[in-house]
Amino acid sequence: MPPAILSFPKSAPRPLAEDAVRLTGATKGFGQKTLFEGLALTIRRGEFVALLGASGSGKTTLLRVLLGLDSLDAGSGEVTAPRAAVFQEPRLVPSQRVWRNVLMGVPRARQSRRLALDALSEVGLGASADAWPVTLSGGEAQRVALARALVLEPALLLLDEPFAALDALTRLKMQDLVRRLCDRHTPGTLLVTHDVDEAVRLADRVLVLRDRRITLDATVGEAREGSTPAGARLRAQLYSELGVDTFVPGAADHAPHAPGGAQA
């Protein structure tokens, strides 16, 4: 088996002018179970890619590989630096005030309260700079985590189901915020999720990881709106790809989606 190479440039010169991630022949498994095999993935700078997959499909492992937390069994690739991540949990340090948490990834020489405050006001939390993390709500804590990632001006932003633990209304607001900030900062973004609507709502490109490979790679484009035929078609396709065949919201004209899931 060829040695697994995934290089992580440490300093400023960015070798990938266009691409944030380049992965070829990537293979990874645990024990007897292979999660993905010979996988190829390219994410361009400024591109928002959503990776869909059922639980246990290996999508989070792929993200961990890109973060350098797991290594590949085979294959090679490159990711740009700086990288930053937002996880499902905020993962803030409880013993540090909010603004200190924001500076977690900033080199000591560049750390300043000003920098943290700017990042916090970008996520609408300028007033909470001196709060302790335990006093924040789930949505606020997650926004701090977002500020902590964006303050690094990442070339690659990795999002591991960052909205999963939020309530429905907070989730929508947070999704809009993430999309807006990604448009402004233009990192290459990989969002790992199992939520089809979320993926289509946010991403430029949606991938499905299933049976150890990427089985679908669709550009969202016109299909973002669920009410359009293209939107309905893409969603139906994604659900079907994820093995949810019975529920196709608004896809078929002869069976309009009725409240309560009424059947003929």
Binding site: A85, V93, S95, Q96, M104, G105, L152
Partner: peptide, 23 residues
């Protein structure tokens, strides 16, 4: 998970020990 996040954000082992683990 906190240690993992700190690692991802580039904190050194010493910094993690003194700034996160100790408190």
């Amino acid at each position: 998970k906190l240690i993992e996040a700190a690692t991802v954000f580039g904190m050194s082992r010493t910094a993690i020990a003194t700034q996160i683990v100790a408190p």
